[in-house]
Amino acid sequence: MSVPLYHVLVLAAVMFAMGLACVVAWRANVIMMLIGIEIMLNAVMLVFVGGSAHWGIADGQLFALMLMALTSAEVSLALAMVVYLHRRKHSVNTDHFDSMRG
């Protein structure tokens, strides 16, 4: 049996909305924001895999694998930057880093 594409898409949309809500809700904490972004990325990967299964083409799965590699690299960088930011201002609240104000 196979899960219909429609269901997969609904699940992905729900996951994406949850990830976004996480990012928006914990915007005072950069680590929580990163977690939210990961969830959103996973939602995207789920869409790729679902699409790939639906049409029987491997491209989507390949892309999901590439996204995994990409996110692992991104997270390692992002965590390093979080450590750095924390060292500078003893804070992980993004609103404290507003030197890009116009």
Partner: peptide
């Protein structure tokens, strides 16, 4: 135009969403 950019990530995020 630069006054539009507050430098605060949270506002960008909310605008984005």
């Amino acid at each position: 135009l630069g006054r539009w950019s507050t430098g605060r990530v949270s506002i960008y995020l909310i605008s984005f969403a």
